[in-house]
Nucleic acid binder design. Structure first.
Lengths: 196, 196
DNA sequence: CTTCATTCTATCCGTTCGGTTAGTTTAGCT
DNA sequence: AGCTAAACTAACCGAACGGATAGAATGAAG
Protein backbone atom coordinates (compact mmCIF):
# COMPACT_ATOMS: atom_id res chain seq x y z
CA UNK A 1 0.00 0.00 0.00
CA UNK A 2 2.69 2.43 0.94
CA UNK A 3 6.12 2.93 -0.35
CA UNK A 4 8.85 1.80 2.05
CA UNK A 5 11.43 4.23 3.32
CA UNK A 6 14.76 4.51 1.65
CA UNK A 7 16.58 6.13 4.58
CA UNK A 8 17.45 4.43 7.86
CA UNK A 9 15.86 6.35 10.76
CA UNK A 10 18.36 4.96 13.26
CA UNK A 11 21.32 6.03 11.17
CA UNK A 12 19.72 9.43 10.65
CA UNK A 13 19.30 9.93 14.38
CA UNK A 14 22.87 8.90 15.10
CA UNK A 15 24.12 11.29 12.44
CA UNK A 16 21.99 14.06 13.92
CA UNK A 17 23.47 13.43 17.36
CA UNK A 18 26.98 13.65 15.95
CA UNK A 19 26.32 16.87 14.06
CA UNK A 20 24.49 18.70 16.82
CA UNK A 21 26.94 17.44 19.43
CA UNK A 22 29.87 18.75 17.47
CA UNK A 23 28.48 22.04 16.20
CA UNK A 24 25.46 22.94 18.28
CA UNK A 25 21.89 23.50 17.16
CA UNK A 26 22.14 26.77 15.25
CA UNK A 27 25.33 25.92 13.39
CA UNK A 28 23.85 22.82 11.75
CA UNK A 29 21.78 23.65 8.68
CA UNK A 30 18.98 21.63 7.17
CA UNK A 31 21.04 21.15 4.00
CA UNK A 32 23.81 19.63 6.10
CA UNK A 33 21.28 17.32 7.74
CA UNK A 34 20.20 16.23 4.26
CA UNK A 35 23.75 15.33 3.34
CA UNK A 36 24.94 13.62 6.50
CA UNK A 37 21.80 12.09 7.92
CA UNK A 38 20.59 10.83 4.55
CA UNK A 39 17.13 12.35 4.82
CA UNK A 40 15.70 15.06 2.59
CA UNK A 41 14.48 18.39 3.88
CA UNK A 42 11.03 17.19 2.95
CA UNK A 43 11.35 14.11 5.13
CA UNK A 44 12.82 16.20 7.91
CA UNK A 45 9.55 18.12 7.97
CA UNK A 46 7.03 15.33 7.38
CA UNK A 47 8.60 12.48 9.34
CA UNK A 48 10.53 14.29 12.01
CA UNK A 49 8.60 17.52 12.44
CA UNK A 50 11.41 19.89 11.54
CA UNK A 51 14.89 20.69 12.68
CA UNK A 52 14.04 21.45 16.31
CA UNK A 53 12.05 18.25 16.71
CA UNK A 54 14.95 16.21 15.33
CA UNK A 55 17.28 18.03 17.64
CA UNK A 56 15.18 17.19 20.69
CA UNK A 57 15.03 13.58 19.56
CA UNK A 58 18.81 13.62 19.39
CA UNK A 59 19.06 15.09 22.88
CA UNK A 60 16.65 12.49 24.25
CA UNK A 61 18.59 9.69 22.64
CA UNK A 62 21.79 11.12 24.04
CA UNK A 63 20.28 11.11 27.50
CA UNK A 64 19.19 7.51 26.97
CA UNK A 65 22.80 6.65 26.24
CA UNK A 66 24.00 8.71 29.16
CA UNK A 67 21.69 6.76 31.42
CA UNK A 68 23.72 3.64 30.69
CA UNK A 69 27.03 5.29 31.56
CA UNK A 70 25.95 7.68 34.33
CA UNK A 71 27.60 7.39 37.75
CA UNK A 72 26.88 4.11 39.57
CA UNK A 73 24.15 4.33 42.19
CA UNK A 74 25.54 1.63 44.44
CA UNK A 75 29.32 1.49 44.17
CA UNK A 76 30.92 -0.94 46.59
CA UNK A 77 33.94 1.21 47.29
CA UNK A 78 35.16 4.78 46.94
CA UNK A 79 37.48 3.44 44.31
CA UNK A 80 34.57 2.20 42.22
CA UNK A 81 33.09 5.68 42.30
CA UNK A 82 36.42 7.28 41.48
CA UNK A 83 36.84 4.90 38.58
CA UNK A 84 33.76 6.35 36.93
CA UNK A 85 35.75 9.44 36.03
CA UNK A 86 38.23 7.43 34.02
CA UNK A 87 35.46 6.59 31.58
CA UNK A 88 36.02 10.00 30.06
CA UNK A 89 39.43 8.86 28.87
CA UNK A 90 38.15 5.61 27.37
CA UNK A 91 34.47 6.22 26.64
CA UNK A 92 32.46 3.06 25.92
CA UNK A 93 29.88 4.87 23.77
CA UNK A 94 30.41 7.27 20.85
CA UNK A 95 34.08 7.80 21.63
CA UNK A 96 34.50 9.90 18.50
CA UNK A 97 32.19 12.51 19.99
CA UNK A 98 33.55 12.65 23.52
CA UNK A 99 36.11 15.25 22.45
CA UNK A 100 33.18 17.62 22.01
CA UNK A 101 32.31 17.47 25.71
CA UNK A 102 28.81 16.70 26.89
CA UNK A 103 26.12 17.19 24.27
CA UNK A 104 23.57 18.27 26.82
CA UNK A 105 25.83 20.75 28.56
CA UNK A 106 26.75 22.32 25.24
CA UNK A 107 23.05 22.58 24.50
CA UNK A 108 22.32 24.13 27.89
CA UNK A 109 24.85 26.86 27.27
CA UNK A 110 23.70 27.51 23.72
CA UNK A 111 20.10 28.00 24.78
CA UNK A 112 20.96 29.60 28.11
CA UNK A 113 17.74 28.65 29.81
CA UNK A 114 15.61 30.25 27.10
CA UNK A 115 13.96 27.04 25.86
CA UNK A 116 11.56 25.19 28.11
CA UNK A 117 11.96 22.06 26.02
CA UNK A 118 15.68 22.12 26.67
CA UNK A 119 15.20 22.98 30.32
CA UNK A 120 13.10 19.86 30.79
CA UNK A 121 15.96 17.78 29.44
CA UNK A 122 18.29 19.57 31.82
CA UNK A 123 16.28 18.33 34.79
CA UNK A 124 16.65 14.78 33.60
CA UNK A 125 20.37 15.30 33.16
CA UNK A 126 20.85 16.71 36.64
CA UNK A 127 18.98 13.73 38.05
CA UNK A 128 21.35 11.43 36.21
CA UNK A 129 24.47 13.27 37.31
CA UNK A 130 24.05 14.99 40.67
CA UNK A 131 21.23 12.70 41.72
CA UNK A 132 23.24 9.58 41.13
CA UNK A 133 26.30 11.04 42.84
CA UNK A 134 24.14 11.65 45.86
CA UNK A 135 22.76 8.11 45.84
CA UNK A 136 26.25 6.71 45.44
CA UNK A 137 27.65 8.72 48.34
CA UNK A 138 24.72 7.82 50.54
CA UNK A 139 25.31 4.19 49.72
CA UNK A 140 29.01 4.48 50.53
CA UNK A 141 28.22 6.22 53.78
CA UNK A 142 25.86 3.40 54.69
CA UNK A 143 28.67 0.94 53.94
CA UNK A 144 30.91 2.83 56.32
CA UNK A 145 33.32 3.93 53.64
CA UNK A 146 32.63 7.55 54.42
CA UNK A 147 32.82 9.33 57.78
CA UNK A 148 29.57 9.59 59.69
CA UNK A 149 29.60 13.38 59.48
CA UNK A 150 30.23 13.43 55.75
CA UNK A 151 27.90 15.84 53.96
CA UNK A 152 26.50 13.80 51.10
CA UNK A 153 24.67 16.71 49.48
CA UNK A 154 27.74 18.87 49.29
CA UNK A 155 29.91 16.00 48.15
CA UNK A 156 27.52 15.25 45.31
CA UNK A 157 27.32 18.92 44.40
CA UNK A 158 31.09 19.07 44.23
CA UNK A 159 31.30 16.03 42.00
CA UNK A 160 28.59 17.42 39.75
CA UNK A 161 30.24 20.82 39.34
CA UNK A 162 33.60 19.22 38.73
CA UNK A 163 32.18 16.87 36.12
CA UNK A 164 30.53 19.75 34.32
CA UNK A 165 33.74 21.76 34.39
CA UNK A 166 35.62 18.75 33.15
CA UNK A 167 33.35 18.47 30.13
CA UNK A 168 33.83 22.12 29.32
CA UNK A 169 37.60 21.74 29.44
CA UNK A 170 37.38 18.77 27.11
CA UNK A 171 35.21 20.59 24.59
CA UNK A 172 37.36 23.70 24.61
CA UNK A 173 40.47 21.65 23.88
CA UNK A 174 38.80 19.19 21.51
CA UNK A 175 40.41 16.36 23.41
CA UNK A 176 39.41 14.04 26.21
CA UNK A 177 43.04 14.08 27.23
CA UNK A 178 42.65 17.71 28.29
CA UNK A 179 40.45 16.47 31.11
CA UNK A 180 43.08 14.23 32.67
CA UNK A 181 44.32 16.69 35.31
CA UNK A 182 40.76 17.35 36.41
CA UNK A 183 39.98 13.67 36.45
CA UNK A 184 43.02 12.93 38.59
CA UNK A 185 42.06 15.73 40.95
CA UNK A 186 38.53 14.37 41.30
CA UNK A 187 39.81 10.89 42.01
CA UNK A 188 42.18 12.22 44.65
CA UNK A 189 39.39 14.16 46.27
CA UNK A 190 37.16 11.11 46.44
CA UNK A 191 39.90 8.97 47.93
CA UNK A 192 40.66 11.74 50.38
CA UNK A 193 37.15 11.50 51.72
CA UNK A 194 37.93 8.07 53.18
CA UNK A 195 40.26 9.23 55.92
CA UNK A 196 39.33 11.30 58.95
CA UNK B 1 39.35 68.40 9.14
CA UNK B 2 37.32 65.31 9.92
CA UNK B 3 33.86 64.92 11.22
CA UNK B 4 33.65 63.82 14.85
CA UNK B 5 31.91 60.63 15.81
CA UNK B 6 28.31 60.63 16.87
CA UNK B 7 28.39 57.28 18.67
CA UNK B 8 30.20 56.56 21.90
CA UNK B 9 32.74 53.74 21.37
CA UNK B 10 32.77 52.85 25.04
CA UNK B 11 29.01 52.52 25.21
CA UNK B 12 29.07 50.49 22.01
CA UNK B 13 31.60 48.07 23.45
CA UNK B 14 29.66 47.65 26.67
CA UNK B 15 26.50 46.99 24.70
CA UNK B 16 28.35 44.45 22.57
CA UNK B 17 29.56 42.66 25.69
CA UNK B 18 26.03 42.47 27.05
CA UNK B 19 24.57 41.15 23.82
CA UNK B 20 27.24 38.55 23.09
CA UNK B 21 27.35 37.50 26.72
CA UNK B 22 23.65 36.90 26.81
CA UNK B 23 23.10 35.33 23.39
CA UNK B 24 26.45 34.16 22.06
CA UNK B 25 28.25 35.16 18.90
CA UNK B 26 26.07 33.60 16.22
CA UNK B 27 22.74 34.60 17.72
CA UNK B 28 23.53 38.32 17.68
CA UNK B 29 22.94 39.87 14.26
CA UNK B 30 24.54 42.96 12.82
CA UNK B 31 21.12 44.66 12.73
CA UNK B 32 20.76 44.06 16.46
CA UNK B 33 24.21 45.53 17.02
CA UNK B 34 23.09 48.60 15.09
CA UNK B 35 20.10 49.02 17.36
CA UNK B 36 21.61 48.32 20.75
CA UNK B 37 25.20 49.46 20.36
CA UNK B 38 24.26 52.63 18.52
CA UNK B 39 26.61 52.07 15.61
CA UNK B 40 25.61 51.51 12.00
CA UNK B 41 26.57 48.44 10.05
CA UNK B 42 28.80 50.70 8.03
CA UNK B 43 30.67 51.86 11.14
CA UNK B 44 30.85 48.29 12.38
CA UNK B 45 32.88 47.48 9.28
CA UNK B 46 35.02 50.61 8.93
CA UNK B 47 35.76 51.40 12.57
CA UNK B 48 35.59 48.00 14.19
CA UNK B 49 36.54 45.65 11.41
CA UNK B 50 33.32 43.63 11.34
CA UNK B 51 31.25 41.55 13.70
CA UNK B 52 33.98 39.09 14.66
CA UNK B 53 36.47 41.85 15.42
CA UNK B 54 33.94 43.58 17.67
CA UNK B 55 33.24 40.27 19.34
CA UNK B 56 36.90 39.69 20.10
CA UNK B 57 37.17 43.24 21.45
CA UNK B 58 34.25 42.42 23.73
CA UNK B 59 35.92 39.22 24.89
CA UNK B 60 39.18 41.04 25.57
CA UNK B 61 37.40 43.72 27.54
CA UNK B 62 35.57 41.05 29.49
CA UNK B 63 38.87 39.43 30.38
CA UNK B 64 40.19 42.83 31.47
CA UNK B 65 37.26 43.08 33.85
CA UNK B 66 37.72 39.51 34.96
CA UNK B 67 41.31 40.31 35.81
CA UNK B 68 40.08 42.69 38.50
CA UNK B 69 37.78 40.10 40.09
CA UNK B 70 39.78 36.91 39.51
CA UNK B 71 40.77 34.80 42.52
CA UNK B 72 43.23 36.50 44.90
CA UNK B 73 46.86 35.46 44.42
CA UNK B 74 47.87 35.97 48.02
CA UNK B 75 44.94 35.34 50.35
CA UNK B 76 45.84 35.51 54.02
CA UNK B 77 43.54 32.71 55.07
CA UNK B 78 41.60 29.81 53.61
CA UNK B 79 38.53 31.82 54.46
CA UNK B 80 39.66 34.67 52.23
CA UNK B 81 39.98 32.24 49.36
CA UNK B 82 36.63 30.67 50.13
CA UNK B 83 35.05 34.10 50.21
CA UNK B 84 35.96 34.62 46.59
CA UNK B 85 33.19 32.24 45.61
CA UNK B 86 30.56 34.40 47.24
CA UNK B 87 31.27 37.10 44.69
CA UNK B 88 29.08 35.14 42.29
CA UNK B 89 26.08 35.93 44.47
CA UNK B 90 26.85 39.65 44.71
CA UNK B 91 28.98 40.46 41.66
CA UNK B 92 30.75 43.81 41.81
CA UNK B 93 30.89 44.22 38.01
CA UNK B 94 28.10 43.89 35.45
CA UNK B 95 25.74 42.16 37.89
CA UNK B 96 22.96 42.21 35.30
CA UNK B 97 24.99 39.83 33.14
CA UNK B 98 26.18 37.38 35.78
CA UNK B 99 23.00 35.36 35.37
CA UNK B 100 24.32 34.42 31.93
CA UNK B 101 27.33 32.65 33.40
CA UNK B 102 30.85 33.40 32.27
CA UNK B 103 31.07 35.12 28.90
CA UNK B 104 34.32 33.42 28.03
CA UNK B 105 33.16 29.94 28.97
CA UNK B 106 30.02 30.38 26.91
CA UNK B 107 32.23 31.46 24.03
CA UNK B 108 34.54 28.48 24.48
CA UNK B 109 31.64 26.08 24.20
CA UNK B 110 30.09 27.85 21.24
CA UNK B 111 33.31 27.71 19.23
CA UNK B 112 34.39 24.36 20.62
CA UNK B 113 38.08 24.90 20.02
CA UNK B 114 37.56 25.68 16.33
CA UNK B 115 38.75 29.30 16.46
CA UNK B 116 42.37 30.03 17.19
CA UNK B 117 41.50 33.61 18.12
CA UNK B 118 39.14 32.31 20.77
CA UNK B 119 41.61 29.66 21.91
CA UNK B 120 44.18 32.34 22.60
CA UNK B 121 41.72 34.09 24.89
CA UNK B 122 41.07 30.78 26.60
CA UNK B 123 44.72 30.54 27.61
CA UNK B 124 44.54 33.92 29.23
CA UNK B 125 41.38 32.89 31.05
CA UNK B 126 42.90 29.68 32.37
CA UNK B 127 45.87 31.66 33.64
CA UNK B 128 43.49 33.96 35.47
CA UNK B 129 41.46 31.15 36.96
CA UNK B 130 43.46 27.98 37.49
CA UNK B 131 46.76 29.84 37.58
CA UNK B 132 45.62 32.16 40.32
CA UNK B 133 44.09 29.32 42.30
CA UNK B 134 47.45 27.62 42.18
CA UNK B 135 49.29 30.73 43.33
CA UNK B 136 46.80 31.25 46.12
CA UNK B 137 47.10 27.69 47.37
CA UNK B 138 50.89 27.83 47.20
CA UNK B 139 50.77 31.00 49.21
CA UNK B 140 48.47 29.45 51.80
CA UNK B 141 50.71 26.41 52.01
CA UNK B 142 53.69 28.67 52.62
CA UNK B 143 51.72 30.36 55.39
CA UNK B 144 51.12 27.00 57.00
CA UNK B 145 47.38 27.10 56.47
CA UNK B 146 47.54 23.97 54.39
CA UNK B 147 49.10 20.60 55.29
CA UNK B 148 52.65 20.08 54.09
CA UNK B 149 51.60 17.21 51.82
CA UNK B 150 48.77 19.13 50.23
CA UNK B 151 48.79 18.81 46.45
CA UNK B 152 48.51 22.38 45.21
CA UNK B 153 48.13 21.46 41.55
CA UNK B 154 45.25 19.13 42.14
CA UNK B 155 43.60 21.54 44.54
CA UNK B 156 43.76 24.31 41.98
CA UNK B 157 42.47 21.97 39.30
CA UNK B 158 39.54 21.07 41.49
CA UNK B 159 38.69 24.69 42.18
CA UNK B 160 38.94 25.51 38.50
CA UNK B 161 36.68 22.69 37.38
CA UNK B 162 34.18 23.51 40.08
CA UNK B 163 34.13 27.17 39.16
CA UNK B 164 33.54 26.32 35.53
CA UNK B 165 30.74 23.95 36.44
CA UNK B 166 29.27 26.59 38.69
CA UNK B 167 29.12 29.07 35.84
CA UNK B 168 27.39 26.55 33.62
CA UNK B 169 24.78 25.89 36.28
CA UNK B 170 24.17 29.61 36.61
CA UNK B 171 23.75 30.12 32.88
CA UNK B 172 21.44 27.15 32.47
CA UNK B 173 19.17 28.46 35.22
CA UNK B 174 19.50 32.13 34.30
CA UNK B 175 20.14 32.90 37.95
CA UNK B 176 23.22 33.36 40.11
CA UNK B 177 21.17 31.90 42.90
CA UNK B 178 21.26 28.53 41.14
CA UNK B 179 24.95 28.39 41.96
CA UNK B 180 24.51 28.65 45.70
CA UNK B 181 24.68 24.91 46.48
CA UNK B 182 27.86 24.60 44.44
CA UNK B 183 29.33 27.67 46.08
CA UNK B 184 28.60 26.31 49.54
CA UNK B 185 30.14 22.99 48.58
CA UNK B 186 33.30 24.68 47.31
CA UNK B 187 33.61 26.73 50.47
CA UNK B 188 33.20 23.63 52.60
CA UNK B 189 35.84 21.81 50.59
CA UNK B 190 38.31 24.64 51.01
CA UNK B 191 37.72 24.85 54.74
CA UNK B 192 38.04 21.08 54.94
CA UNK B 193 41.56 21.32 53.57
CA UNK B 194 42.70 22.99 56.80
CA UNK B 195 42.36 19.96 59.05
CA UNK B 196 44.38 16.77 58.84
C1' DC C 1 -1.64 -5.44 -13.65
C1' DT C 2 -3.98 -1.75 -11.83
C1' DT C 3 -4.62 1.14 -7.82
C1' DC C 4 -3.28 4.31 -4.47
C1' DA C 5 -1.19 5.87 -0.36
C1' DT C 6 3.31 7.26 0.69
C1' DT C 7 8.01 8.78 -0.03
C1' DC C 8 10.78 10.52 -3.10
C1' DT C 9 13.00 14.74 -6.20
C1' DA C 10 13.16 19.33 -7.52
C1' DT C 11 12.00 23.81 -7.17
C1' DC C 12 10.31 27.79 -4.93
C1' DC C 13 9.19 30.82 -0.97
C1' DG C 14 10.06 34.79 2.14
C1' DT C 15 13.40 36.01 5.59
C1' DT C 16 17.67 37.04 7.49
C1' DC C 17 22.49 36.89 7.32
C1' DG C 18 27.25 39.73 7.13
C1' DG C 19 29.04 42.89 4.28
C1' DT C 20 29.38 46.53 0.54
C1' DT C 21 28.48 50.55 -2.29
C1' DA C 22 26.99 55.12 -3.64
C1' DG C 23 25.75 59.32 -2.14
C1' DT C 24 24.81 62.83 1.62
C1' DT C 25 25.84 65.35 5.79
C1' DT C 26 28.93 67.41 8.91
C1' DA C 27 32.86 69.19 11.48
C1' DG C 28 37.49 71.12 11.37
C1' DC C 29 40.66 73.57 8.82
C1' DT C 30 42.52 77.59 5.89
C1' DA D 1 32.78 81.26 3.52
C1' DG D 2 34.72 77.42 1.10
C1' DC D 3 37.14 73.08 0.97
C1' DT D 4 37.85 68.54 2.22
C1' DA D 5 38.20 64.34 4.75
C1' DA D 6 35.72 61.64 7.63
C1' DA D 7 31.36 59.73 9.33
C1' DC D 8 26.96 59.40 8.31
C1' DT D 9 22.29 57.25 5.68
C1' DA D 10 20.10 54.16 2.76
C1' DA D 11 19.83 51.05 -0.56
C1' DC D 12 21.66 46.91 -2.30
C1' DC D 13 24.39 42.37 -2.76
C1' DG D 14 24.83 37.28 -3.00
C1' DA D 15 24.39 33.59 0.07
C1' DA D 16 22.28 30.72 3.37
C1' DC D 17 18.54 29.93 6.34
C1' DG D 18 14.08 26.84 7.61
C1' DG D 19 10.24 25.51 5.50
C1' DA D 20 6.54 24.61 1.76
C1' DT D 21 4.79 23.00 -2.65
C1' DA D 22 3.91 20.30 -6.85
C1' DG D 23 4.64 16.34 -9.24
C1' DA D 24 7.16 11.98 -10.26
C1' DA D 25 8.56 7.46 -8.56
C1' DT D 26 7.62 3.38 -5.95
C1' DG D 27 6.06 -0.62 -3.58
C1' DA D 28 2.37 -3.32 -1.25
C1' DA D 29 -2.57 -4.63 -1.63
C1' DG D 30 -6.35 -5.99 -4.50
Amino acid sequence: MARSRKSDPEHALQAAISMFWKSGYAAVGTRQIEDEAGITRFTLQTSYGGKMALFLMAVDRYLDMFETVAPPVEPDTLDALADWFTFFLAPPVMPECMAYGCFLLNTLIEFGGASSEVNQRASRYYRLLGGRFELALEHLKRLGQLPGDFDVRQGAQLLQSSTIGLNVLIRAANSSEAGRPSIDACRSMIHGWARS
